[in-house]
Amino acid sequence: MSTRVMPFRGSLTSREQVSVFEFSWPVIVFVPLVAVLIQIFIPVKVRFMPIVDLPFMVTIFFATARRNPITGCLTGCFIGLVQDLFAGPNHPLGMYGIALTVVGYLASSLGVKIDVENPGTRFLITFGFFGVHQGVYYGVAHGLLRQGVQWSWSHIAISALANAVLGIFVYKFLDRFKQR
């Protein structure tokens, strides 16, 4: 039994306790890798795939399920760096790493306070954190690296919406790997 319960600290929901899930090591290692692999493979065949960010969703899922900010950081850092490896020579290693580290930390911190098992909550979390993810990425690219990236509210809103909708189904699928 890997599920633990912990009391809400400053709970924002009506629930008194929240489950903390754990995962086996193969799941922790291979699910992010498969997500990155799908992310770099599927856009060859599916046109709209680039606006979907599976590694980002996996980061959110693990962070909110485990509800530990430190593991959330590390998970985000690991997934982001793997994603950086394939992003081309103009993307130094660490751009996605930093963005997903912040997302992982915030998502796990938020997961301690609210119930994140609800599809509606998951939708809102994914939608909101996608904006955070893009904001941190833009900050790194523009502020630290002086890259001429463009910020488009409409594009980010559409991408966030697509990720939030798809995320509900992805999280539902990944729930199977939770150890109860």
Binding site: V36, Q39, I40, F41, P43, V44, P50, I51, D53, P55, Q83, F86, A87, G88, N90, H91, Y96, Y137, A141, V149, S159
Partner: peptide, 10 residues
């Protein structure tokens, strides 16, 4: 073509 960067920025 066997793959992409997998991100919207690249």
């Amino acid at each position: 073509v066997i793959g992409t960067s997998g991100s919207d920025q690249s």
